[in-house]
């Protein structure tokens, strides 16, 4: 197991914080969008884009790149922020989110946004696509790894379980999925709306290697990715326990901010809490 030095961890934490500030600015500028579910996996996407994944922003179609699939497409803002900070397009363009003519659509669009591998938005479809990418990498004997971010509420879509079967049947050890387990969905807590537990047992029963982590702990995220890469013959699911709206006090655990932008006051408070010097 790699021991990550304190500087690397601090750099990643600062980057995650930067992405969170982008999310607040983007959704405030758009006056719509989904801050809650973006903030909850900000640490995960930071670890992926700034430490774990191999890719070339100047050569987006580099064939040996690792790939990221955002299955819960509504959490696009932090994905775009990561792509911009990684160099796929100018950071200034982030504020065009959801505006007419922008290449930053409300939900990810492969045909418009550099770095977006597949269009998503209708829930429950990303894992199947990630599996297809995993099969292709195996056929081509490439070492590319495929990362898929699933929402927890999204797991209520049956297609996920069709995909779960396929990934273990075809031994897709190059596919690693995260569940952003923030335990909230639009109509309330997942366990009230449609219970998902016992979630670990479900994935185990489908033949997956299951790892549970605190999805806001950078070291745990990096360790889990490293472990996943070392598992042969099975896909890995990382169930990341997270807090919806993480980093902004009044958004944390608040269903209201699933799909609502901050107002002017909330905007200022949120940025201050995230360390922006105003």
């Amino acid at each position: 197991m790699t021991l990550y030095d304190e500087r690397t961890i601090q750099m990643l934490e600062a980057k995650a914080n930067l992405l969170r500030r982008h999310v607040i600015k983007m959704t405030y500028a758009a006056q719509s969008g989904h801050p809650g579910g973006s903030l909850s996996y900000a640490d995960i996407i930071t670890a992926l884009f700034f430490k774990v994944m191999r890719f070339r922003p100047q050569e987006p179609l580099w064939e040996d790149r690792d790939k990221f699939v955002l299955s819960k497409g509504h959490a696009a803002p932090v994905y775009y922020a990561a792509l911009a900070e990684a160099g796929y397009f100018p950071v200034e363009d982030l504020l065009s989110l959801r505006k007419l003519g922008s290449y930053l659509q409300g939900h990810p669009c492969r045909m418009k946004t550099p770095g977006v591998e597949i269009s998503t938005g209708s829930l429950g479809q990303g894992l199947s696509v990630a599996n297809g990418m995993g099969l292709a990498a195996k056929l081509d004997r490439r070492s590319s790894r495929i990362y898929c971010l699933l929402g927890d509420g999204e797991l209520q879509e049956g297609q996920n379980w069709e995909a779960a079967m396929l990934a273990s049947h075809y031994k897709l050890d190059n596919v690693t999925a995260f569940v952003d387990r923030n335990k909230m969905q639009i109509d309330g807590p997942t366990e009230q709306v449609m219970s998902l537990e016992p979630l670990v047992d479900k994935w185990k029963a489908f033949g997956w290697n299951v790892i549970e982590i605190n999805g806001h702990d950078m070291r745990q995220i990096l360790d889990a990715c490293e472990k996943a890469a070392g598992v042969m013959g099975r896909p890995t699911i990382i169930i990341a326990h997270t807090i919806k709206g993480k980093g902004v006090s009044f958004m944390e655990g608040a269903v209201a901010f699933h799909g609502k932008a901050p107002n002017a006051d909330e905007y200022r408070i949120a940025l201050r809490e995230l360390g922006e010097k105003i």
């Binding site: 064939e63 492969r110 591998e117 597949i118 429950g124 479809q125 894992l127 199947s128 696509v129 990630a130 599996n131 297809g132 990418m133 995993g134 099969l135 292709a136 990498a137 081509d140 049956g158 297609q159 069709e162 995909a163 079967m165 396929l166 049947h169 075809y170």
Partner: peptide, 21 residues
């Protein structure tokens, strides 16, 4: 690749292979 009796997954998996060339 036989995906079993799972048409939604059939199309999603097909898409993933297709965008991979």
């Amino acid at each position: 690749f036989n995906v079993g009796i799972a048409e939604q997954n059939l199309m999603g998996t097909a898409a993933g292979l297709a965008v991979s060339g």
